[in-house]
């Protein structure tokens, strides 16, 4: 028997899901604008160093300089401007690495789950092997091999994270493949690849979209981690991870160098994830 208080609770949750979805999308929208408009809205040159302006506190603190809203790091670089420019790299990585990972992982998962046979054996075994790698160490290793740079970061993310898509999509495709409508499409004389693309793919698409959103958040984090261990792109270029690494070393002298990029990164990752969860609830027919 359905608990009645449960129905109340569920409608409450529904409302909260809606709110979370809008807040997340809102923050990500602000971020996209910041990245696009960085050259016009950034108060300072993100690369300009001035040792006389080193470790200035945020404007509302004593000893601040006007124009450096969130203070400066040890080299006198403006924290706010670097966060705005850092959004560019973060979002490029999120979009490009996320989409590429999704494309490759989902294709492999779809093939393994629907075509089965030796294709499935090979892909499943590869997934098993991949799952035995510590992902962070693997990504650091790949960057060390390929050398730092944007392309390396994106490739590393794709190489490591394709299994996230492949695993889930394979399971879904297998479940869908067992359904009657797929059998009837086959009986009607459709080719296997055609069936896969027209019957299976549309049904696993919602799952793929959710995973893609989550993957974008993961890509942002991976980029930050790689910048943190100083392997992302050149050390001067503004990255959130690089700023966090710098902030970590001067944490007792200048907390603002760590806290602002950290909060930005935190909200971004949280937004991608909540967006994904929100979409999942929207797509899930059981919850709807």
């Amino acid at each position: 028997m359905a608990s009645n208080s449960g129905t109340d609770g569920r409608s409450q949750i529904r409302r909260r899901v809606g709110l979370k979805l809008w807040l997340s999308a809102g923050w990500l929208g602000v971020l996209v604008l910041a990245a696009l408009l960085a050259p016009w809205i950034a108060p300072q040159d993100p690369l300009a160093q001035d040792l006389f302006l080193g470790r200035l506190p945020p404007v509302w603190q004593q000893g601040a300089e006007p124009g450096f809203w969130l203070g400066t790091d040890s080299l006198g670089r403006d924290v706010l401007s670097r966060i705005l420019y850092g959004a560019r790299l973060a979002l490029i990585v999120a979009l490009v690495a996320g989409s590429l990972t999704c494309l490759i992982g989902a294709s492999l998962g779809l093939m393994a789950g629907f075509l089965r046979g030796w294709v499935d054996v090979v892909i499943s075994r590869a997934i098993d092997i991949w799952m035995a790698f510590p992902p962070v160490l693997f990504s650091i290793l790949l960057i060390a091999v390929m050398g730092p740079g944007l392309v390396s970061i994106i490739l590393a993310i794709v190489v490591i994270d394709w299994t996230r898509f492949a695993r889930v999509v394979r399971a879904e495709a297998m479940a869908q493949g067992a359904m009657d409508y797929v059998a009837s499409a086959q009986v009607a004389g459709r080719g296997r690849v055609s069936t896969m693309l027209t019957e299976i793919l549309p049904n696993v698409l919602p799952t793929i979209v959710v995973l893609l959103t989550l993957e974008m958040g993961i890509a942002v984090i991976v980029e930050a981690i790689l910048s943190f261990v100083n392997l992302s792109i050149s050390t001067d270029d503004p990255t959130w991870g690089g700023m966090i690494a710098e902030g970590r070393t001067s944490i007792h002298q200048a907390w603002w160098v760590l806290i602002f990029p950290l909060v930005t990164l935190f909200l971004t990752v949280l937004s991608f994830s909540q967006l994904g969860e929100g979409l999942k609830d929207r797509f899930d027919p059981v919850l709807r």
Partner: peptide, 13 residues
Amino acid sequence: SVPDFLWGLVLIL
């Protein structure tokens, strides 16, 4: 939603 790396930084702060 938030991975261990970020929680670590939050705890440090």
